[in-house]
């Protein structure tokens, strides 16, 4: 702990965030895209906890609590949307869901 600095945690969080964003950009399967979004959220919570710990304040940690709550609600609604979309169009590939393009 003594030798692990804030920078290390932020670096890890940043890399995880970038990995998640990469997934969002390159993946076609909406479910995987959705998981990548969750990974980005988790990376952000890691940064928040690190800030909270290193600044010796509880607020960041409480914020993480809310992030987890919101993420849970969001996953429920998002997955329901994906299922509804699949029922209607028969696909979860973002490349085929381009009705709004033209």
């Amino acid at each position: 702990m003594e030798h692990t600095t804030l920078a290390h945690h932020l670096l890890l969080a940043g890399l995880l965030f970038a990995a998640g964003l990469t997934g969002v950009i390159i993946r076609r399967n909406l479910l995987v895209v959705y998981m990548c979004l969750e990974l980005m959220l988790a990376a952000a919570t890691l940064a928040l906890v690190a800030f909270s710990r290193f600044n010796n304040t509880m607020d960041g940690a409480v914020l993480v609590f809310f992030v987890i709550t919101v993420a849970a609600a969001e996953v429920a609604v998002g997955l329901a949307l994906i299922v509804a979309l699949y029922r209607r169009t028969g696909t979860v590939s973002s490349d085929q869901l381009n009705t709004l393009c033209d």
């Binding site: 890399l15 995880l16 990995a19």
Partner: peptide
């Protein structure tokens, strides 16, 4: 990070 790579 490895797990994230697996995910992506």
């Amino acid at each position: 990070l490895g797990a994230a790579g697996l995910l992506v």
